[in-house]
Amino acid sequence: MLELRLVQGSLLKKVLESIKELVNDANFDCSSTGFSLQAMDSSHVALVALLLRSEGFEHYRCDRNLSMGMNLNNMAKMLKCAGNDDIITIKADDGSDTVTFMFESPTQDKISDFEMKLMDIDSEHLGIPEAEYDAIVRMPSAEFARICKDLSSIGDTVVISVTKEGVKFSTKGDIGAANIVCRQNTTVDKPDDATVIEMKEPVSLQFALRYTNFFTKATPLSSTVTISLSNELPVVVEYKIAEMGYVRFYLAPKIEE
């Protein structure tokens, strides 16, 4: 038996909106730790890792570890039917081939349940070791989204370079080239508006903008984004989910042959 009650249901709606374009089908894993997911896109270039910790739910009952295969587009369709202020409860019985999403309006005057069919998914699970990164950039998530969108109108790839000068995002395309430099800026009114760069080694890596633009669908989840880079390693783009966990995106670099 599984029963997870999330008072801030809008978080789950935002999570689905942030990952449904990158991944079609995924197994949601439920354990005493929390509700989690790890899935790669079909070309194995990008990976999403989600964790919603059990403590973040108002009620969390998971009698035994359970993996539920879901089509993320269908799940997103159902969650779109929940109001932004609704409480969402995820329910499943042991051995059942369905999951139920229950939506309660804040005043309890409207209660809906949506039952969705589960699916068997052969998912590959990658072991991602904890790593020390050469450079970690924290910046406003809206700024990162704006940069990825702007650069994708010029080129297909972005070179992200971190030096002591700041973090530079560069692209080239048929019509020309663009460079955007963000300097460390901690003298802002709100901490979330700061750009903070921790650098051990200068880093320069190239990525497909198509994927970074997918990642920025998670912008509504967090006002800041953390980009962790090491030379010759996949980048990690992390959006923290208020006191509950995170959505992390991993993206393999492009390499000059």
Binding site: M40, H44, P234, I255
Partner: peptide, 14 residues
């Protein structure tokens, strides 16, 4: 020539 790497090059498939 720019090649797109895949994640399985960096991480073990469990």
């Amino acid at each position: 020539n720019v090649e797109q790497n895949v994640l399985t090059l960096y991480y073990d498939n469990l």
